[in-house]
């Protein structure tokens, strides 16, 4: 992928990607590293990004990298880099387990939990935006996300 295109994507999506990483890792430098890793992966790989889903792809990649990083730290297990070519991908068991998170959230949480989780970690919305959209306080948003994240960490051992 050309560097000019990467730069365009970087400037367009960095803020949201960083926000997603920071709210999972709670560490500024690690969050920057995760976002950089995703873009470095795009530069090196042959990933085909579709205009309609590029933001979603980038945010999902960040989220998965974050969970892998947490898991890596806890188990000292070397996680493979998340690779996705096009929208339909053949996955390693490790990748599949990690990105089955969407299915887990869809099956185990209330529609409101699912919406809030998606808004924060799939669309990179701010706490303000989520609170306004759901008509609840920011602290309530935090509590919803906290419940879902804790459950994911337990279920997927990340």
């Amino acid at each position: 992928m050309k560097k000019e295109y990467i730069q365009q994507l970087f400037r367009q999506h960095y803020a949201k990607m960083y926000r997603v990483a920071y709210s999972i890792l709670l560490d500024e430098q690690e969050s920057k590293d995760v976002v950089s890793d995703v873009f470095a992966g795009l530069l090196q790989g042959n990933v085909m990004l579709l205009p309609d889903t590029v933001e979603h792809y980038l945010l999902t990649s960040v989220r998965n990298q974050c969970f892998k990083r947490i898991r890596h730290e806890e188990t000292k297990h070397i996680a493979e880099q998340f690779i996705s070519s096009e929208q339909q991908t053949t996955l390693s068991i490790e990748d599949e387990r990690l990105i089955d998170i969407n299915e887990y959230v869809a099956s185990c949480f209330s529609p409101q939990d699912q919406r809030i989780f998606r808004m924060r970690y799939s669309y990179g919305c701010s706490y303000d935006e989520i609170a306004a959209s759901e008509g609840i306080s920011r602290v309530a948003v935090w509590k919803h996300l906290s419940r879902v994240l804790n459950s994911i960490k337990k279920h997927f051992n990340v």
Binding site: F10, R11, Y14, A15, Y22, K32, V35, A40, Y127, W142
Partner: peptide, 21 residues
């Protein structure tokens, strides 16, 4: 919690991040 959320939603310096990258 509110102050942590403020910090998490702070806009990053994209130019600086690109230069670092």
């Amino acid at each position: 919690l509110e102050s942590l959320m403020e910090q998490l939603d702070k806009e990053p310096d994209v130019d600086a991040a690109w230069q670092e990258f």
